[in-house]
Simulated assay, not measured.
Amino acid sequence: MTLFFLCSQEESRRFQHYLADLPVEAWDQQSACDQWLVKDVVGHLVGNAEFYATTVERGLSGQLDPLPGRPPAGTGHPSLGAATTAAGAIANRERLGDQLLSTLAANADRLLELLLGLSP
Results as ranks from 00 to 15, higher is better:
Q29C: 13
A82G: 01
W27I: 03
G117W: 00
A83P: 05
L3D: 13
R13G: 07
A32C: 01
S79M: 03
L116P: 11
Q35M: 08
G117A: 06
N107H: 12
F15L: 02
D98W: 08
E11G: 00
L80S: 08
G47R: 00
G76D: 00
L96G: 07
M1R: 06
L37Y: 02
N107L: 13
D28Q: 12
C7M: 09
A53P: 07
N48I: 12
V41I: 07
R13A: 08
A73T: 15
L118A: 03
D65E: 15
Q30H: 11
T103Q: 15
P68N: 02
A20F: 11
S102A: 15
T85K: 06
E57D: 15
G74L: 01
A108V: 15
E10F: 08
D28N: 13
N48V: 13
L115D: 05
L111W: 12
L111P: 02
R58A: 02
R70F: 05
E113Y: 13
L115M: 08
S119T: 03
G74C: 01
T54W: 03
S61V: 01
D28I: 04
T75M: 00
E113R: 14
C33H: 12
A105Y: 12
R93T: 09
A108I: 14
T54P: 11
W36L: 06
W36N: 03
D65A: 07
P66V: 05
Y52R: 08
Q16G: 03
F5R: 05
D40W: 05
R95C: 10
L3M: 06
V24A: 09
S79R: 03
H77C: 05
L112C: 11
S12L: 04
R70N: 08
S61P: 00
S61M: 04
D98L: 07
D21A: 01
A82P: 00
V42F: 10
H44G: 10
F51P: 00
V56F: 05
I90N: 03
Q16H: 03
A73F: 08
I90F: 08
Q63W: 02
D34F: 11
T2R: 04
L37V: 04
M1V: 08
T75S: 00
Y18T: 14
D109L: 10
